[in-house]
Design a protein around this nucleic acid. Structure first.
Lengths: 228, 228
DNA sequence: TGCAAGTGTCACATATCTGTCAAACACACA
DNA sequence: TGTGTGTTTGACAGATATGTGACACTTGCA
């Protein structure tokens, strides 16, 4: 399951950008525009991480931090404080109040993502799902192994990532463009047709000892991994 | 010592099969047929893992999960929920309540075992035992000695630590970066490729009198020590 | 001081994977 | 049944990643 992150940030531009980036990295994110909303969100569903603006309307960030820490169920919930202030004293105060980390605005997306990952790793080592199963296909990311109906299957790096990607949303059809973006990365340029070739290779690997083809071709649209 | 697993599952056919399979994999398992029994078992001896049916007579699975989490001694006890339901909401609810993973019935034995291992792997990071065995390789930390299938093997300090590190989570793939961090320390700077060289040396040492290569290379990902 | 053992780097040898193409093949539609 | 379009597939020439021998340098010890 995707880690769930609450963004408590008043400024719409910042919070939307954050959400966009977090979701692109595979997190689920919800936005609260003030302190009250944030507490509601947190009560409703305990997040895996809070990105918390220091200055927040209604209930201040620092107060939220206190309340979160005071409660049993959320006492260890990781918090990253966002703040415009850069002075050492504020940093110390933030950390004293119980924030796990601290990023001052303006921050680079890279930096923030790195911190988010670091904090999640530290607090709860393996939030990313280690094992995904789709039908009789099993993907174990920790051991980097794939099996189908119990038989181990060897895949090259690209096919591995491709399967991993398709498996995140079984039955969902991905266009070649989306696959290139998600598997190869948006910065490299390769022919669209290359996707077909890799799909073919993946198919051949998965159709081991006479099993059926688990990848569906949707003409004019793309490919999807069958759920059943 | 064998990891001890409590199976809280009403249906006799399922629970017996589970016990059989778990014991075949080298775990010790006890069965509870309802929620009360489960709590008794857990109180009597804290297990390493609970396989918990969502629907359980007397005290429900979800309630057990809560109680286990509420108590200090068992707060971090890994729980895998078993359930017939497959809906996303249930899954979320299960994970929210504090289950570490989730398997929906009917499940394949392979999948369940993989998940059991994954959960144990991540929750019990480094069991500080003096002697670790992985396959036919034995590491004695007390005497700092290694043997394979009974034959003593001499390793340099770095190769020793490398093997020790890999052996903590057999089959798990470590990237070169992780290995540098864990074996060399995050403060020293050495070339990434140095890892390869040491892996090579370790391999040569371990492949004594014609034994097979116990270290798997995963292209673009890293290395792992084979369990079998 | 000399020696033995261990280390990190490099350069080259190998192994493996990739992207592209073109020809073969499927499919929808007239 | 023919036609145009989209997909599959085998072959292949790089491109990349990994394996490994050599070597210079350090360290601990006799």
């Amino acid at each position: 399951m995707k880690p769930f992150i609450v963004i408590a940030e008043d400024e719409a531009a910042v919070s939307e950008l954050l959400r966009y980036n977090l979701e692109a990295e595979g997190y689920e994110a919800a936005i609260a525009h003030d302190g009250e909303e944030a507490m509601l969100l947190i009560n409703e569903r305990v997040p895996d991480l809070i990105l918390l603006d220091w200055m927040l309307p209604k209930v201040s960030g620092i107060e939220i931090c206190r309340r979160v820490r005071a409660r049993q169920t959320t006492a260890n919930l990781p918090i990253i404080m966002l703040t415009a202030r850069t002075e050492e004293t504020d940093r110390i105060r933030g950390l004293q109040t119980g924030a796990d980390d601290y990023v001052s605005k303006p921050f680079s997306n890279n930096e923030l993502m790195a911190r988010v990952q670091a904090v999640l790793r530290r607090i709860r080592p393996a939030l990313v799902e280690d094992i995904i199963t789709v039908g009789d296909i099993m993907i174990d990311r920790a051991t980097h192994s794939i099996s189908r109906a119990g038989t181990d299957i060897h895949l090259g790096p690209t096919e591995f990532r491709l399967l991993e990607f398709l498996a995140q949303h079984p039955d969902r059809v991905y266009s070649r463009e989306q696959l290139l973006d998600g598997v190869w990365g948006s910065d490299v340029y390769v022919e669209l047709r290359t996707v077909d070739v890799h799909i073919g290779r993946l198919r051949r690997a998965l159709m081991i000892n006479g099993r059926d083809n688990p990848i569906r071709t949707v003409r004019q649209a793309g490919y999807s991994l069958r759920k059943n």
